[in-house]
Design a protein around this nucleic acid. Sequence first.
RNA 1: GCGGGCGUGAUGGAAUUGGUAGACAUAGCGGACUUAAAAUCCGUAGCCUUCUGGCGUGGGGGUUCGAGUCCCCCCGCCCGCACCA
Length: 871
Amino acid sequence: MARYNPASAEPKWQQRWDEEKCFEARSDGDRPKYYVLEMFPYPSGKIHIGHVRNYAMGDVIARFKRAQGFDVLHPMGWDAFGLPAENAARDNGGHPREWTYGNIDVMRGQLKRMGLAIDWSREFATCDPEYYVHQQKLFLEFLKKGFVERRESLVNWDPVEMTVLANEQVVDGKGWRSGAPIEKKSMSTWFFKITERADDLLAALDDGRLEGWPAHVKEMQRNWIGKSEGLKMAFPLSGNDLPTDKLEIYTTRPDTLYGASFLGVAPDHPLAKHYAESDPAVAAFISECAAQGTSEAEIEKAEKKGVPLPVTGRHPFTGEELPVYACNFILMQYGTGAIFACPAHDQRDLDFARKYGLPVKPVIAPTPGHENDLKATADPSCPTDDGRTEAYTGPGTMIHSGFLDGMTTEEALAAAIAKIEEMGWGEGTTNYRLRDWGLSRQRYWGCPMPIILCDDCGTVPVPDDQLPVSLPEIDPEEFKAPGNPLDRDCAKAWREVSCPKCGKDARRDTDTMDTFVDSSWYFARFASQPDDKPVDKEEADRWLPVQQYIGGIEHAILHLLYARYFTRMMKECGYTDVDEPFTNLFTQGMVTHATYRDEAGNWLFPEEVEIRGGEAFARDSGAPVTIGPIEKMSKSKKNVVNPMAMADAYGADAVRFFMLSDSPPERDVEWTEAGAEGAWRFANRVYETVERGEGVLKRAGAPGTDLPDDLMEIRRRTHKTIDGVTGDIEHFRFNKAIARLYEFLGALKGISPEGEAAPVMVEALRALTQLTAPFMPHLAEECWELLGGEGLCADAPWPKADESLLADDVITLPVQVNGKRRGEIKVAPDAPQDEVQKIALAQDDVARFLEGKTVRKVIVVPGRIVNVVAG
RNA sequence: GCGGGCGUGAUGGAAUUGGUAGACAUAGCGGACUUAAAAUCCGUAGCCUUCUGGCGUGGGGGUUCGAGUCCCCCCGCCCGCACCA
């Protein structure tokens, strides 16, 4: 009996699939389409086990849908622009292009080694000029339509990477990759006006268009867009040396206007900056705030502080002159960078007012039932300042509020906005946290902006016939210097051009695009890749939207939001009818691994460690090793495993299989050698089981229903397994599908495919092979061949469960007495209730517990349970 | 602080709509095969027990014939957002 040998079987079948162009997407037939896509990888150099899990999931879906008769599109490509290539060129010499394409070659080979059902004919890298030329065209079309514009603005400058970052790439005031403190710098750069689409991007999260997305991803996007409705209004200012006669503020609580006791501006607000010039106290405060950390912990601790400005603002309703403070808790980036403060009903305002002895004017009497929210308050209607230190922010009735008196807070909100609008002092507005998407990056290795900057004509699009604007060749030595080589002499010939409009000397925009632009439409290009335009609409719309998108949660906001935005813009340019690119989204969990440290505290790779009886030892020295917590795999902690080494040891099938067994796919999974060994054992057991039925597909016919009980049971098991696995795959319950395969395999143990059993086993082994195929495709082909199946297993239609075999003819019902399980009975599934009751009560184990008791009630849930209530 | 999710054996996790808790796997234990080991196979497996049963899904209470599942309170963990006016 030959053992299954993945080392020879896996390359063999990969070659067959290739030769037969098995997985090339067909778009000619009238079969339904299915587009499944995993987020394409950055070509970092080699695939990691997380990639394997990600792509294995997509592969299961792709193979499953294909077998179900869909035309499947399952492509692969490379998110190939970006800083690491430049860093590699800087550190190791060479050119970013060589590094990138070299990595792609390696990783392509590794992915192929995993036997993925991918249509490689559509592969591209975003750094291919054949790809980015269309991105440049899209950019210019967007420019024409006004979706993108060039603006002078304060940008987030990463001094380490020497480039601009989007707000989203600044975390706690630091660059998301470099970790360097971000500086503000004024620059002229390009922006996609994504805020114009904020409303629709938000609406789609709730109107059913994204029903197939996880709730938490939608919630994250909702938070990110951060829509709030309120009022923008201007307070007339009085005072000496006024730089402006009005102060524009933003509030979501205009209902509390009568409770206003002061106005506040951000430390970097123009008004504060103006007075800083003449007042050292203001200047000192501003620099103090600038020095203040922006990390969460520091914000938490930071005391509310401020400095008065020599101005007052007139209250719209009372005419009262309110003092104006520069406050450390006001953000210039949000709203207008200025507020009116109502200490009684806002905690921050109250903290500030208590510190500086400013008036606290309650204007809301809490709604009965909400008084409990009001701590430290004697009188719940709080007619006057009662010295409290906690603001009441709940609902209520307006008091001390002139024309608003007696209204609910909700009514007052609308009434106050209407009044301010009527007075011409301001208007109700919607505010977003979302900023426009700045896409200029001061880097070399990205898609060049197809723009020429002319002193006379401004920004001039590169004419269509001159596209693409390709990256110029740069001497690799140039990457050793910091900054963008495109700005230096080495790119002079490329940079200096004549203006297409006026012909005078001009220069190219030396910025390249944010790599999130590259990944905002690659899925469309996979669907259709004509030479002369980004996509062919008809072809793109045949495939789009992506029915199943799979990737990491780390892209929940940026990539997914940008792709949604981009798709809308492409729609407006007539490239597709789709506005939401991804119908169903699945975010898979990470792969984790235990960490190991030697006695000196140094991290060890798993392969350097030997586990004996739960204790770990260094493989070379035998010294004891501490087993640390199970954590996300990271290079720094060395708790990584090499998928290629694992595939060599256990076969690609086993690696894929293990990554999908045990844990639900959305959760983290721990890589263990034992788990991989388990998968390997499974593969061998399947092979051995199938081997017993060698060639049987060619001999035996279809099984009948006139069979002995044990064989009928096998038939039922077969069809139940088909039914179960099918549903499990459809719902991404890969771990359960695999558990069912184990059970099924166990049930087939020791049954020989002879005589009467032959057709039954044919059916069972065929199902076992086909149901295993999406998870262990190479093994399945090997088994298919062994069984004598026609053609490739990958081409065989997915098995269908026979409904009539899903139900048992005798079922076991548990019987409870007073809710405790006391016995069980065997009955026909359609046995009448009174009969079931009779059998249950007569059952020995049940009767024992009924002695001396009166049966008061018997509950029979058909097919489920019998419960006898007795007392 | 706000929002979302979760808590089940030694471990990862199953459990349809409120109906046999712990499927399946991993580790463990016992056995077979072997000179031996590995591999493989078979068996065993929530806890306690006077062997009759009792107790068990983070803790407490409730609804119900019946609760891991529903409701209330509490504890713990994870994720997202956050001086956002």
